[in-house]
Design a protein around this nucleic acid. Sequence first.
DNA 1: AACTCTAGCAACCGCTGTCCC
DNA 2: AGGGACAGCGGTTGCTAGAGT
Length: 322
Amino acid sequence: MDMAHERDASSEEEVMAGELRRGPWTVEEDLLLVNYVASHGEGRWNSLARSAGLKRTGKSCRLRWLNYLRPDLRRGNITPQEQLLILELHSRWGNRWSKIAQHLPGRTDNEIKNYWRTRVQKHAKQLKCDVNSQQFKDVMRYLWMPRLVERIQAAAANATGAGQQTGAGDTPLSSSWQHGADDGLYASPELPTDACWPAEYYTAAGDHQLLNNPAVPELSSTTAGSSSPSSDSGAGAQPWLAPVGGAEWFTIACDASSAAVAMHDTVLAGQQQQQPCLLGETWTTSSELPELGVADFEIGSFDVESIWSMDDNLWYTQTQGV
DNA sequence: AACTCTAGCAACCGCTGTCCC
DNA sequence: AGGGACAGCGGTTGCTAGAGT
């Protein structure tokens, strides 16, 4: 676009003239921006940049605010729940990062995009296939995602045990993810209430009441941020950001898990595969996966466990009080 | 200890869409 | 209707820390 090009060119001139800064933001710049937004609000980024005394483009200010300085940002590891959601939503919408980010509270499109490009594409590379290929999608759907569900279920089971000791109701994420549009916590702007989980999970489970469960516990201020995995998020921890809850979350995870098994079995049954398929079962050779259409892949090299970092494991241990 | 490689992430870039005058 | 300003999106780049040699 010529217009944009001219603007960029002028910005370039300003940079060359030393009037505009580029590159990493300094603490002073961050403070200027935060303070200015706090007192004047967001928007009108170009004039904001000038008024705040920042030698940055409005674009740069906006990006810095949205991706780094916003108080409701969640930082730290992408949780298994979030990974599952990203995988599902990406399979639905493709590289619509912003749209996907709308359904992950506190996460930015940039963060999700980076996650996809680093973690997910890395595994596609390991499998020697294209990330957009049907084969890789199959691996994600029938191997990776059920594994995530299993992981979530296991963590939630531990949380349930811990919850019985420490008191029920510590289900910040699950409650926020179940809430509809009225709670103001995490209302999905476009999708129905079951959009937070793959629709087929609920369909297969045949149990929508979970989504509308009125017995959602109140968010407890005592749980706010107490189990946040992101120690670097500091005071920014939000009550609805704690990733794994208690009994209610466990129920959902179990349902999702059952549904994943059902989905998995359905696929196999549809292809005349009658042997039972256990959730969490892993395949170690490509020959065991012909029904998934991934026979040509080196499944053995696909390290499902490696999608979680050591930090994740540590965090789980801490959260579950193990 | 020094160097290289790599993953992860912050920031930038180019472009399109939308609003307003 | 047309143009300017701005917001927002997706792709790409470059820096940095940590791992490996």
